[in-house]
Each structure stands twice: as structure tokens, then as C-alpha cells.
Design a protein around this nucleic acid. Structure first.
Lengths: 171, 171
DNA sequence: TATTGTTATACTCTATAACTATA
DNA sequence: TATAGTTATAGAGTATAACAATA
């Protein structure tokens, strides 16, 4: 097991019971299950899970402009334009002028959008809890803490790819 | 769905510090980070992470036919054909006749494919450990256990979507 | 000159349907 | 009739480049 280059001296062993790459395999399976479970809950919003996440972000995180919104959602600005168009068409959000920068648009929820989000959150929460049915409350809490830590680490380590900090500047 | 509304009486509360839907958001961010980290490690294999996972599955799980392989990877049989074509072209795997069923093909690794997998697994493991750098060894082990349980629950609850059991019949 | 957002285009990924050869 | 695999086609999703307005 002597390596000429890649492995650093203090490299850890694979996760117990996991083959190399299994972490991604399990994550992918869980995420697919999540999207499938969510699909039914978020059906009233255009753009599936993405549309729901956009509405949720707009209401709860109040990003200052579309760029901040797109960064948080992890989607390109060109994709975001079309997604927003759909939600505007459905009268769930609207574009308003950003106060500080006349180039930018701020996305806010309409009354109808805010009302719909409240309804959907009940169903989404139920769907997520059902997804976690195989774990105890303590285990679910544990998992939530671990993935919070992990995702925070990741977007700090990859500032270019996911500059989620931008969304934290409330406006 | 027995009720016309939604929330069952014993529904649990959202995860602490999570908005409804945040579970998927965090999972998505971690999975994107994982794919990004893996991309460099698995570059020699065609088809990116999918190609690596295919090679790993063929070597370590020895699925009886393409359908079992595709089920495990969570990809459609029509997509799988093209992916296998690429790996065959690169001389990493080959199609052989399945012993029990003349309609089916079994995918096995070539010597070159097995050799490459061994090399890549060192890098993949290093990449995954780097992704987990923000967690202690104990926390990483904890996380591995939790997502194993979760993914097992999920593909049991969705037998149609992910019949991974089919891959367990070694052959 | 750089940035925000839009639009048009092209590319990738995935799904649908039709076909063969076996069962 | 049903299933394993292939192929061709179509669709969704995403990225690239060019543009207008503003900083």
C-alpha cells in the first residue's frame, strides 16, 4: 500500500462499510428519494423543487438581488431568469427595483405566494419527516447537525462555486 | 393518503434550525461539492462520476446483468447502454454473455479497468476524506451510519424507483 | 471597465418509443 | 406475452455568448 504520490501521510481510512465513492452514492440515493417525496408536495409551484426553494428563499432569506438568490440556490443566473419568469407568471413572486442598485432586481413574494408557501411548508415538512421515518428523533437531529456542518464547510472551501454568503446580506 | 388535508396527528416538528425543505438544500449542496471534488479524481474514466461508479459496482458488486447494474446506479437502461459503450471503448469493461439468460449481458472489468479502479480509489478516498475534513472521525462514522440507514429505508420504501435488491443477486 | 439581468443558442443529460432476440 | 438490450428521437435541463442598462 505504498504510494508514490497522491495520498498524504495522514490520510484517513475509508468510512466503515463504505467503498470509496459510496458517500456520493448514498447521498445521491437520499437526494433522489427526497426529490421524489417533495414532488407531490410542491406540485402547485412551477419548477418543481427548485420553484419551491426559490419561494422559500425569497420569503425567509430575503436576498438582495437575483444574483444572491441564484447563488443560494446553486443555479446559474441565466437559468434563474426563466425560473423567476414562471413564478411571476403564476403570480407567486414579483420583480421590484432594488433600492441601492438600479441594475438589480429584488424578488419578493406576492400575498398569494406567501400564502401558498405556508400551505406547502406543512406538506414539505410532513414529506421530510416521512423520509426520516427510519431514524429516531435523536438520530434525525444528529443528521441535521452533521449535514449543516458539512455544507457550511463545503461552501466555505469552494467560495467560487457557491458564494452563499452573498445571500446573507439581507435587503 | 387517507386524509384530504395533509398533516397526520403525530407529525414531528421540523429539524432544529431547518426550514421545511432545507434537508434537500443541504443534501444538494453536499452532493454538488462531492461531485466537484470527485471530478478531478475520476477524470481518467469516461462519464465522470457515473463512469467511476459503474466500474466500482462491476468490480465490487458483480451485478448479474445490465438491468441490475442500472438499478443500483439509479439510471435508465437506455442511458446505461451509452455509458457502457464509452467504458468499453476505453477498454475498461467488456460485455460477456450472461450464463443463465441468453438475452442478457454481464458487464465485467478488464484487467486495465481493474487496475485503473485501484488507482482511482486512492484518490477518491482522499477526496472524500477532504470533503469530510470539517468533521471528526467519530462524526464521519456517525454520518456514514445515518446515511446508510436512510438510503436503505428509502429504496425499501420505493421498490419501483430503486430496486437495488436486484443487484444483490451475485452472479 | 465591470456588473446585473435578459435573450438566443448550443450542448448535455435523460426519457419515450420502436425494434431484435430471447424467454 | 413479457423481458434484456439497443437504437433513434424528442424533451428537459443547463451552460455559453452576446447584448442593454447601470455602476
Amino acid at each position: 500500500m505504498s504510494t508514490s504520490r497522491s495520498t498524504p501521510p495522514g490520510a484517513r481510512q475509508p468510512l466503515p462499510g463504505f467503498l470509496p465513492g459510496d458517500l456520493g452514492w448514498h447521498l445521491g440515493m437520499i437526494l433522489r428519494g427526497h426529490q421524489l417525496a417533495m414532488a407531490q408536495s410542491v406540485a402547485p409551484v412551477p419548477g418543481q423543487v427548485r420553484g419551491y426553494q426559490l419561494l422559500s428563499t425569497v420569503v425567509h432569506r430575503d436576498p438582495a438581488n437575483q444574483q444572491a438568490l441564484g447563488s443560494h440556490l446553486g443555479i446559474d443566473r441565466t437559468v434563474l431568469t426563466y425560473l423567476i419568469d414562471e413564478l411571476v407568471e403564476a403570480n407567486l413572486v414579483e420583480r421590484v427595483a432594488a433600492p441601492s442598485d438600479r441594475r438589480a432586481r429584488k424578488i419578493i413574494a406576492t400575498a398569494q405566494g406567501a400564502r401558498l408557501l405556508e400551505e406547502l411548508e406543512l406538506k414539505v415538512n410532513a414529506a421530510e419527516q416521512e423520509l426520516l421515518a427510519g431514524l429516531s428523533d435523536a438520530q434525525s437531529t444528529q443528521l441535521a447537525g452533521l449535514i449543516s456542518t458539512l455544507s457550511a464547510t463545503i461552501h466555505n472551501a469552494q467560495p467560487g462555486a457557491n458564494p452563499c454568503e452573498a445571500v446573507d446580506q439581507l435587503g
